[in-house]
């Protein structure tokens, strides 16, 4: 049996890097006394699977972690034991039991919705959204392992709109072959708006989706 854990990583915890988050979760699970399965081998460890690592600084409203278990346990018992063991700034929102054959969340991930919030009015940037979306191709420089590469992110933008003057929301492709991070989209939007100076903003991943825009946690 495996447990899908939906948790929030926001406020000050957004500054915690992915490796540190994994260690934090491992320690919380140890404290919880839950029957987590360990790997075999010389140095046994917990095999936690995260749907997608978040960049340092980005918040996540409904992040997903898969925990393999060595014993059956009810969702309610699991949730209360884990909640008690987590720091209050890192709450467990929901859990869902699935069987061992359930595909890993990462393999089903297709898209993610983000919210981008500014401390000040972002009108000039927001005004550029329709112009950007009208383009057939949006070429941006993307950092890869082998250096920088020009790529077209237009097909990776599923949705982009302003919620109000300080708040943009978007849905972007996120899968092995085509991932567009919100920072990359903002590069394109700033270029479109012709703005050299950046305004400070906070990124939050609101939801992750699988095939046909079904929330990943329900798949």
């Amino acid at each position: 049996m495996k447990m899908l854990v939906i948790f929030e990583k926001s406020k000050r915890i957004r500054h915690v890097g992915h490796l540190d988050l994994m260690r934090t979760m491992q320690r919380a699970l140890r404290r919880s006394g839950l029957p987590v399965a360990f790997s075999n081998g010389f140095n046994p460890h917990m095999l936690l699977n995260f749907a997608a690592p978040l960049s340092v600084g980005t918040s996540g409203r409904r992040e997903i972690m898969e925990v393999p278990l060595s014993k059956e346990i009810s969702e309610a018992d699991f949730k209360s034991a884990l909640s008690a063991a987590l720091p209050s700034d890192l709450p467990c929102i929901a859990v869902r039991a699935v069987d061992d054959k359930h595909p890993a969340p990462m393999s089903m991930l297709r898209a993610a919705a983000y919210s981008i919030e500014f401390y000040e009015n972002a009108r000039p940037l927001i005004d550029a959204i329709p112009r950007l979306l009208a383009r057939d191709t949006i070429m941006v420089m993307r950092k890869t392992k082998s250096g920088e590469k020009l790529c077209d992110i237009r097909p990776m933008i599923y949705d982009l709109c302003a919620v109000d003057d300080t708040h943009i929301s978007c849905t972007l492709s996120i899968c092995e072959s085509a991932t567009c991070k919100p920072e990359l989209l903002m590069d394109a939007l700033y270029a479109e708006a012709g703005l050299a100076e950046r305004s400070y903003c906070l990124y939050t991943r609101m939801q992750m989706y699988g095939e046909n825009m079904v929330p990943l946690e329900l798949l």
């Binding site: 406020k11 500054h15 915690v16 890097g17 919380a28 404290r31 340092v56 063991a85 720091p87």
Partner: peptide, 9 residues
């Protein structure tokens, strides 16, 4: 930045 956030267990 995680050096400065507090809120640890």
């Amino acid at each position: 930045p995680s050096r400065y956030i507090g809120g640890e267990m």
